[in-house]
């Protein structure tokens, strides 16, 4: 468990990081290291073997949370723990605040970053799931400039995202829901606390004055090569009062969207059944919170 040889550059600006990435030869495996909570163990096991490691930990201004005009912008280097404890996240992105508590352990959240988790693209990870649920916009920079990718389409296959090898994610922007009474629900099952989720479910609802659902976002992790929105369920529930019966009926649409796999810890059949159970609970939790 000793990493293979690699070059290491500690960048002092995003531009410098991008230049270092761009300067690397085409055959070079380039990686950005932020908090290192996933990449470093993978390197130690030689499962990841970048030849160039660009460390963005020291770049000023890459960490931080701003709330402006109905959008919470989280810098890529923001520690997961900082986001979890941020008043802006707690008040405006309660779904993300709930999800962050399931990311690893406080010790790893003190080092792990929001951007690192997004770019790693684990299909069961919590932050990507919330990004997909809330239609976050993800901004990346390269020597060619900046571009914004919607979360829908950002996550491609397990551990593969739209961020190119010469790009550095700089910010994730989460739209804030303002209309109506908002409630959120986040549920996941893992063998042990802090493990990667076997299945995770996120839901956010908005209810109008008489309790009718005007907007709902529902997404699942761990049941497909990427986090998935359950659009048909969202459509079916919009306009209802989120009665239990309506939720249960709408959950049938989960099956058409997910493509679960077997692994060591759970079967595909388990994931399929539990996806519905957890999403149902997440929606009920969101509803009850909105009504409270």
């Amino acid at each position: 468990m000793k990493a293979a040889e690699f070059d290491y550059i500690r960048a002092d600006s995003v531009a410098a990081a991008c230049e270092a990435l761009a300067a690397a030869g085409p055959g070079e495996e380039r990686k950005i290291v932020a908090g290192g909570q996933t990449l470093v163990p993978l390197m130690a096991m030689r499962l990841a073997r970048p030849s160039l490691l660009v460390d963005i930990d020291g770049i000023p201004g890459l960490a931080g949370i701003d709330s402006v005009d109905g959008v919470v912008a989280i810098g890529a280097m923001t520690r997961q723990r900082a986001a979890e404890l941020s008043p802006a996240v707690r008040s405006e992105l309660p779904l993300l605040a709930k999800a962050l508590r399931f990311v690893g352990h406080p010790q790893t959240r003190n080092r792990g970053t929001v951007g690192g988790s997004l770019v790693h693209g684990d299909p069961a990870a919590e932050i990507p799931l919330v990004a997909v649920a809330l239609d976050a916009a993800l901004e990346a920079e390269s020597t060619g400039g900046r571009r914004v990718c919607p979360a829908d389409g950002f996550f491609e296959t397990p551990m593969v995202t739209a961020v190119a090898p010469d790009e550095c994610l700089v910010e994730a922007r989460f739209p804030v829901w303002n209309a109506g009474r908002i409630g959120t629900g986040f549920r996941e099952v893992a063998s042990r606390q802090g493990d990667f989720a076997i299945v995770a479910a996120a839901a956010q609802v908005a209810l109008d004055g008489d309790g009718t659902c005007t907007r709902v976002a529902a997404a699942l992790g761990g049941v497909a090569p990427r986090p998935v929105r359950i659009a048909a369920l969202e459509d079916a529930l919009t306009g209802t009062r989120l009665e239990d019966r309506a939720i249960d009926a709408a959950l049938a649409s989960v099956e058409a969207v997910i493509e679960p796999d077997d692994d060591l810890h759970a079967t595909a059949a388990y994931r399929g059944r539990v996806a519905k159970v957890l999403l149902g609970r997440a929606i009920r939790e969101a509803r009850d919170e909105a009504l409270a």
Binding site: M45, R192, Q193, G194, L264, H265
Partner: peptide, 16 residues
Amino acid sequence: FLAGSFVDYLLPSSHE
């Protein structure tokens, strides 16, 4: 062999 790390060989922690 499928359980060669602590991601797959699950030791209980103080939480459990």
